[in-house]
Design a protein around this nucleic acid. Structure first.
Lengths: 123, 123
DNA sequence: ATAATATATTCAATAAATTGAATATTCCGG
DNA sequence: CCGGAATATTCAATTTATTGAATATATTAT
């Protein structure tokens, strides 16, 4: 309808809490879908669908590595938008656990990062 | 569902092109509904409904002056958000006529502003 | 009081987003 | 090639948003 369509579409991609949570989880770098699944605590298909919205909005991209697919944010500027919105809306400070997630089978969660070295966990 | 609800709601309020256009029209200060009507070129009820969304999102407030109701943005920071989104989304530079609108009966459009003095137009 | 103007609200129809369930695809290991 | 794991896609049901039409409310002028 107007010259505002592109902005409106961007806002539309960001208007869902689950998608904001996904973006938050991707803040420190790429994550596989199963990790998102563990963090969000919802089913795979549900997450996949939200990832599709973010993908179609040009905000994330995926990369296959073996059986896993890793998603990453390709427009880091979106975090400026998200952070500012959260400030404006008076949302409580965001806390998404950046640590390993207990019931996540992905490599990131089954390794320990120390001094930049990634090592497999024993046990 | 999550701590992201407030942000999501804010984005939701901004996800419609007509609402972005309304905000753009209010950038320089309050305007009456009939002015918005003339600028957007849509019917009064349609605009009133979008104004309701913006009002419920806490972005605008209204003020009655006689028969007219003037709306203004109460969170000017929202323009930072809007501007950044428009940059991010690669939207063409925004141009909303800030001048008088031909078929608008409101006082702002039927007056001329010069050196800070508002004077009625003759004819 | 009545009529006209400005605006809001309600209602209904349609369109779009959300969500879960089922199914398909891709990759890996045997 | 077959089975299982990881992920995507499709489909349908539900909910929510959009939009137009009709109506209501408040204000001003007569």
């Amino acid at each position: 309808m107007t010259t505002f369509d592109p902005s409106a579409k961007l806002f539309k991609a960001l208007m869902h809490p689950s998608r904001l949570l996904i973006l938050e989880t991707l803040r420190d770098g790429e994550q596989c879908v199963c990790h998102l699944e563990a963090v969000l605590g919802c089913r795979q298909a549900y997450i996949s669908q939200h990832l599709m919205v973010l993908r179609e909005a040009g905000l994330v991209e995926d990369r296959r590595e073996g059986a896993r697919i890793f998603y990453r944010v390709i427009k880091p500027e979106v975090y400026d938008l998200v952070d500012y919105a959260s400030k404006l809306s008076g949302a409580p400070p965001i806390h998404v656990s950046r640590e390993k997630v207990a019931d996540c089978p992905c490599p990131k969660c089954n390794s320990t990062v120390k001094d930049g070295v990634v090592r497999e966990l024993e046990g």
